[in-house]
Design a protein around this nucleic acid. Structure first.
Length: 397
DNA sequence: AATACGGGGTC
DNA sequence: GACCCAGTATT
């Protein structure tokens, strides 16, 4: 009976696979995307799971499948609605790429998610991991799928403090069970997220502990070595909340769409500009207002700062409330078209009913209670809350 | 090889 | 507060 570590001989590999697959069969969690084998659904789950924990993804996945139950429904949807469904999940580029990917599958692969690694990797937002995961889980292709869990598990099995991508790929390719690649890859990840955890691995419960070089040497807590990361850069933003107080009607505020590139691409926001050297918050906010065509504004009411921590940035947003008079023709300004274009969330009309092109609006006036219908980042949603409170306050006084 | 890209859970 | 999560694309 040999449980030689690490699993390199063909006999050790056979044992390793059996132990891991037994573990998975007995201990796997019930996850929504494990109830089905539709490749579209597997693709969606894998994209959502990129850099995102299982528990975070579950509610988003369920909502997504109610709204976009099949590839065709997603391919036919508006980008704004797709972004809205993604709001709060982060890495919004994923939503844009997924939308583009299913359209590409519809046009070039007759609506069927491809099964070979090369075609999968050619889809936007599908890298080595996701290609391997979809190929193995949805199509039974014996491909490796090395995510953060697998990386940690492999680093410990082979007791390597800083495994490179090529080495990880080589190990994973040798280990993956050709008879059950999907189950095997999921088993490695399941092991990593439930037993072989980063800080305090439960080695005594591990089904493959006899194969683990780190376990044998007692180095499991130091494998792999932590990745050093750059400290977050501070970003100060002056935000212009433009409010149009209209007699006999509720106040309207201006929202604009961010650039298609960079941070929070394509999401909506209150106009804001990052402070330049030596600039005051209010000056930056006024610049933002001017960029939307509003200059010569009165001082404006300064609201509380909103601080938001991204992985790589520390954002400090300072909102100012500016009263502006109606822009010409503002009463009709895009409101109806945009609302229907954006929001399924408002539950009124479908995007297909929306006039063509309306979704391309770059800025729109909306009433304060409609802010919830737009794809706003967490930081912008917090600003929105302050705005709603301030407008309600002013309305009463 | 390093950096940009969200948000949130955990110790 | 540090770390890291079922990573990808760009430079």
């Amino acid at each position: 009976m040999s449980g030689l570590a690490p699993p390199t001989s063909s006999e050790a590999i056979r044992l390793f696979r059996r132990r891991l697959l037994d573990f998975f069969r007995e201990r796997k969690r019930d996850l929504p995307w494990r109830e089905e084998d539709d490749p579209y659904r597997i693709l969606v789950s894998e994209v959502m799971l990129q850099q995102t924990r299982v528990d975070t993804v579950i509610p988003y996945y369920r909502r997504w499948m109610e709204r976009f139950p099949d590839l065709e429904s997603l391919a036919g949807a508006d980008l704004d609605e797709v972004l809205k469904m993604w709001t709060g999940l982060g890495y919004y580029r994923r939503a844009r790429n997924l939308h583009a990917a299913v359209r590409l599958v519809r046009e070039q692969h007759e609506g069927s998610v491809p099964d070979d690694l090369e075609k999968l990797s050619a889809l936007p937002g599908v890298g080595d991991y996701t290609a391997g995961a979809v190929a193995s889980i949805a199509h039974g292709v014996p491909a490796p799928a090395v995510d953060g869990n697998a990386r940690r598990v492999l680093a410990r099995l082979f007791d390597d403090a800083a495994p490179t991508e090529p080495r990880l790929g080589k190990w994973a390719s040798a280990l993956v069970d050709p008879a059950a690649p999907g189950a095997f890859n999921q088993a490695v990840m399941e092991l990593g997220s439930t037993i072989c955890t980063p800080r305090a691995p439960a080695c005594s419960s591990c089904p493959v502990q006899v194969h683990c070089a780190s376990r044998i040497r007692g180095t499991e807590r130091e494998r792999p070595a932590p990745r050093r990361r750059a400290p977050p850069k501070e970003m100060r933003v002056g935000v212009a909340v433009l409010v149009e107080a209209r007699a006999g009607r509720r106040s309207a505020v201006l929202l604009r769409r961010r650039s298609e590139d960079g941070l929070l691409a394509g999401m909506w926001e209150f106009p804001g500009e990052e402070l330049e050297d030596g600039e005051e918050e209010r000056e930056a906010a006024l610049r933002a207002a001017a960029a939307e065509g509003y200059s010569g504004l009165a001082t404006g009411e300064r609201l509380d700062e909103v601080e938001h921590r991204f992985s790589h940035r520390l954002g400090r947003y300072r909102p100012f409330l500016f009263s502006v008079s109606a822009p010409s023709g503002s009463d009709e300004l895009g409101l109806d078209e945009l609302q229907t274009g954006i929001l399924g969330a408002r539950g009124e009309e479908r995007s297909e009913d929306r006039p063509a092109g309306a979704g391309a609006e770059r800025a729109v006036w909306i009433e304060a209670d409609e802010l919830g219908g737009f794809p706003l980042s967490v930081a912008q949603a917090r600003i929105a809350r302050l705005v709603v409170e301030a407008v309600a306050r002013d309305g009463r006084s």
